[in-house]
Design a protein around this nucleic acid. Structure first.
Length: 452
RNA sequence: GUGGGCGUAGCUCAGUCGGUUAGAGCGCCAGGUUGUGGCCCUGGAGGUCGCCGGUUCGAUCCCGGUCGCUCACCCCA
C-alpha cells in the first residue's frame, strides 16, 4: 500500500510511535522486575546467527520459516527465530566455569518469515527465561512461576489466564504402554496436539491413517479413551503396572505441589494434550492461555535436557520459556491494562514579548541543569499559542515571563492542573543551587511512561 | 503455501444505480488584535478514491491482475 511513491513498512513488521512504545516499555519493565525478583540476570546475543544453529535443533516448522540468506562472506546465516539455540551456544562456551544453576533471561527481538496473522507477525519480542544446570522438578516449577508472576505483574490473574501443563515423557510412556511404536510416536504426538481443535472422528481418522500415525483399531480406541478421562488419577490407575508411567506421574505430582506452595495452583491445570512443537523438549512442558480462549498461546516452555550437548556444550539439564509481546499486548489492550500514554514535562516557559526570550533560555538552562524537563516555544508565538502548546506537551507548570513581573525581578508560575498561580523570584529560577519552584517537580521524569 | 472478506483525507467512515469542482466527524494548521491552555466560533491545508491494465464517449464505482490489510486453514517462537 505504498502511497505516492513513499516507502511502506515491510509486512509483519511494526512501527512503535510513542503511544505504542509506551505499552512495549511497560511490558518490558514488568518482565525485568519479575526476572530480577526471581534472581535471573539479563543477557543478550546477536540477532544474526549461523543457519546451522537452527537447522539441527529446532522443529521443521521453524526451519521452514527462517529469515535466511548468504552474507558477503558466503556464510549461510539466519535472523534468530528463537533464543534458546543462542543461549545454548553461549553457555556451551562458558557454562563450565559458572556456578549452577544458571538463571538467565533475555528480551530478544525474533524473526520468522511467514504470512502474518492476528497475534503472529514476522517479528516480535520475546521474554526468555531459562534455568540451566538443575534437573529436578523444583526448577521446572520455578520457571513456570516466573512466567505466571510476569503476567500477574501486568494485572492478569488466575481468572484471566491459565497454565496447561503436561509431561512429554509421561505421554510417551503412556503411548508406549498402549502399543504405539517409537516410529509412530512423533505422528501420534502431532495428532494429540490437535485433540482440542478437531472433532473426535477426525482425530480417530488421523490416528488410523497410514499417512499419519497408522495405528490399529484397538490402539486408536485406547488412546481416544485415554483423553476422555485425562486426569492424573485416572492415568495412574490405568497404567499402575507400568513403572515409567508411575514415575512420571509422581514427578508431575511433585511439580503441582511445588507450584501450590509457591502460590500458583489457581493458575495451573494438568492437560495431557499439551505437546509443543519444538523438537528439543524432553520433560514437563506448558503453555499459558487466556481463559476466554480468544487468543493464541501467550507463553510456552518446558524442559530441554539435551540441547546444550547437541550444540557442543556440557550435558546440562535446562528448562525455560518464551513469552511473546504480540498476543500479550493484545490481551492487555483488550482488558484495559495498557498504560495511558501522555507526554509530560516539568515546565513550559512562556515568554510575553520577544524581549523575554533570552531570559527564557537562561531559565530553561538553569532548570535543566537541576534535572527538570523544560521546553519553551521555539518561534515567536502568541501567549495563547504558547499556553496551548504547554498543555499539549503535558507541562506540569508554566513559567510565565511577562515584562511587568520581570521588571520587578519575578516570574509567574502557573500550576496547569489547578490553575493556581504564584510569583517566584527570578534569581531562584536562575540559580541552579536553589531548588523547588513549582509543585510536583520532585518526580523523576525518567520513571514516567511518557518520558522513557 | 491455500481459500474468503476488505482497500475513499493522518484516524473512523459516508458517497457515487458509471457522468463535470469526492464529503462528514475527529485530528492538524491559521485566525477570533503577542498577559494565559482545556470550551466555543471562523477559515485553511490534506485524497492521482491502494497500484497496473481492460471495458466504456466517460471509471473511485464494472471486469482482470497485483500489492497490502484481515479472517479461516496450515502451523506455532
Amino acid at each position: 500500500m505504498s502511497k505516492s511513491g513513499k516507502f511502506a513498512k515491510l509486512p509483519g513488521f511494526r512501527d512503535f510511535p510513542p503511544e505504542d512504545l509506551a505499552l512495549r516499555n511497560h511490558v518490558f519493565a514488568a518482565w525485568r522486575r519479575v526476572s530480577r525478583r526471581y534472581g535471573f540476570v539479563e543477557y543478550d546475543g546477536p540477532p544474526l546467527e549461523e543457519l546451522d544453529l537452527y537447522t539441527a535443533k529446532s522443529g521443521d516448522e521453524i526451519v521452514d520459516q527462517l529469515y535466511q540468506f548468504s552474507d558477503k562472506g558466503d556464510r549461510r546465516v539466519a535472523l534468530r527465530p528463537e533464543m534458546t539455540p543462542s543461549l545454548a551456544r553461549i553457555l556451551a562456551i562458558r557454562s563450565r566455569s559458572m556456578p549452577k544453576p544458571i538463571r538467565w533471561f533475555s528480551i530478544p527481538q525474533l524473526f520468522r518469515y511467514e504470512r502474518q496473522q492476528r497475534g503472529r507477525l514476522r517479528e516480535h519480542f520475546q521474554w526468555n527465561v531459562d534455568l540451566v544446570g538443575e534437573g529436578g522438578v523444583a526448577s521446572d516449577a520455578e520457571v513456570l512461576a516466573v512466567a505466571l508472576e510476569g503476567l500477574r505483574e501486568l494485572g492478569l490473574g488466575s481468572k484471566d489466564v491459565r497454565a496447561r501443563v503436561s509431561h512429554r515423557a509421561l505421554l510417551a510412556s503412556i503411548l508406549q504402554a498402549t502399543g504405539v511404536s517409537s516410529e509412530q510416536m512423533p505422528a501420534v504426538f502431532g495428532v494429540i496436539d490437535r485433540i482440542e481443535r478437531e472433532p473426535p472422528e477426525r482425530i480417530a481418522e488421523r490416528l488410523r491413517s497410514g499417512d499419519e500415525a497408522g495405528l490399529d483399531e484397538a490402539t486408536t480406541k485406547k488412546i481416544l479413551g485415554l483423553f476422555q478421562e485425562p486426569g492424573l488419577d485416572s492415568v495412574e490407575e490405568a497404567f499402575a503396572e507400568h513403572e515409567s508411567v508411575v514415575t512420571c506421574v509422581a514427578t508431575m505430582r511433585d511439580y503441582l505441589r511445588i507450584l501450590d506452595e509457591l502460590g500458583f495452583s489457581p493458575f495451573v491445570e494438568f492437560d495431557l494434550t499439551i505437546v509443543r512443537g519444538l523438537a528439543y523438549y524432553t520433560g514437563i512442558v506448558f503453555e499459558i492461555f487466556d481463559r476466554t480462549g480468544e487468543f493464541r498461546a501467550i507463553c510456552g516452555g518446558g524442559r530441554y535436557d539435551h540441547l546444550l550437548e547437541h550444540v557442543g556444550g556440557d550435558p546440562l539439564p535446562a528448562v525455560g520459556f518464551g513469552m511473546g509481546d504480540v498476543v500479550l499486548s493484545e490481551l492487555l489492550k483488550e482488558r484495559s491494562l495498557s498504560p495511558v500514554y501522555a507526554p509530560e514535562v516539568d515546565y513550559f516557559i512562556v515568554s510575553i514579548g520577544e524581549a523575554q526570550e533570552g531570559l527564557a533560555r537562561r531559565v530553561a538552562s538553569a532548570q535543566r541543569g537541576l534535572g527538570r524537563s523544560v521546553i519553551y516555544g521555539l518561534g515567536n508565538q502568541s501567549v495563547k499559542k504558547q499556553f496551548s502548546a504547554a498543555a499539549a506537551a503535558g507541562a506540569a507548570s508554566v513559567i510565565v515571563l511577562g515584562p511587568d513581573e520581570v521588571e520587578q525581578g519575578r516570574a509567574v508560575v502557573r500550576d496547569m492542573k489547578s490553575g493556581e498561580e504564584r510569583q517566584v523570584a527570578l534569581e531562584d529560577l536562575l540559580d541552579a543551587s536553589r531548588v523547588q519552584v513549582g509543585a510536583g517537580i520532585d518526580r523523576s521524569t525518567s520513571e514516567r511512561v511518557g518520558g522513557v
